[in-house]
């Protein structure tokens, strides 16, 4: 259960990316976040795992306000949140297995991590999720030898290897061939259903959001303008979400 209360984020330049956002996310939900680029979707996700520091408001996860965590406590929180980036953010010179194993770094002491001393369990987990995303044969390949779609699957395996309670995916298909969208979203959906892990996906293709998500959050100009089940998203609302910002362009 995640509860977001009055979350705001203003960047140093004065741009207000999030404006007083409040909502609650029950465990096991699959949520699509929609809106135009610049609407605050990405900022919202990055505030949830604290890659960005919120300017105001609370994010209460399992009764703890994570908005103000620092240092070691923040690292402990982050290891429970898997994040999937639009640009994959893998270390392309390392092998697939090294990248996936780095998902376990949050669970070990600094010196173990420095030396790369992963446990048997870590390696089993990593191998299992690499198999899960269908890349068993590429386990020892260098990431820069893989295609874009394969790289994003490595990034997904890395997030899953964290054994998170929440997965945040920031436009995971945006840099890929549109035909791969179903593969990526399928993997996330499957994981969500099997493990009961909450998944939030930023999507700009509305049709995909309707197909996969149970619930939709829509942002416009940093404000949450829609929060409800897919069925409730009428054509009129949809038009407002996408056209509303055109006036401000």
């Amino acid at each position: 259960m995640i509860e977001v209360k009055n979350l705001s984020k203003t960047f140093p330049g004065g741009v207000q990316a999030l404006d007083n956002v409040s909502l609650s996310i029950p465990d096991g939900d699959f949520i699509a976040v929609i809106g135009l680029s610049g609407a605050g979707k990405s900022t919202f996700l990055r505030c949830l795992n604290r890659l960005f520091d919120p300017s105001a408001g609370q994010i209460i996860v399992e009764g703890v306000d994570v908005a103000s965590l620092r240092g070691r406590a923040l690292q402990r929180y982050r290891r429970t949140v898997g994040f999937i980036f639009q640009q994959f953010n893998l270390v392309t010179r390392l092998r697939v297995i090294d990248n996936v194993l780095s998902g376990r770094l949050g669970y070990h002491s600094t010196w173990r991590g420095l030396l790369g001393l992963y446990t048997e369990k870590d390696i089993e987990l990593a191998q299992a999720y690499i198999r899960n995303v269908g890349l068993s044969d590429k386990e020892l390949a260098r990431v820069d030898s893989l295609s874009g779609g394969q790289q994003q699957r490595v990034a997904i395996a890395r997030a899953m290897t964290q054994e998170p309670q929440l997965i945040l995916a920031d436009e995971p298909m945006a840099s890929l061939d549109p035909r791969l969208s179903d593969v990526i979203l399928g993997l996330l959906k499957e994981y969500n259903e099997e493990k009961g892990v909450t998944v939030l996906v930023n999507i700009h293709v509305l049709e995909l959001a309707r197909r996969y998500a149970k619930r939709i959050l829509a942002f416009n100009n940093g404000r949450l303008v829609f929060d409800g089940p897919v069925e409730a998203l009428s054509d009129k609302l949809e038009h407002e979400i996408y056209a509303g910002s055109l006036e401000t362009l």
Partner: peptide, 21 residues
Amino acid sequence: QGPIEALEAVGASGSNVVRWA
């Protein structure tokens, strides 16, 4: 900067980010 961000997101400590990203 991508890999650095990614490793910060998995909860790795500063020196581990240097080592692995």
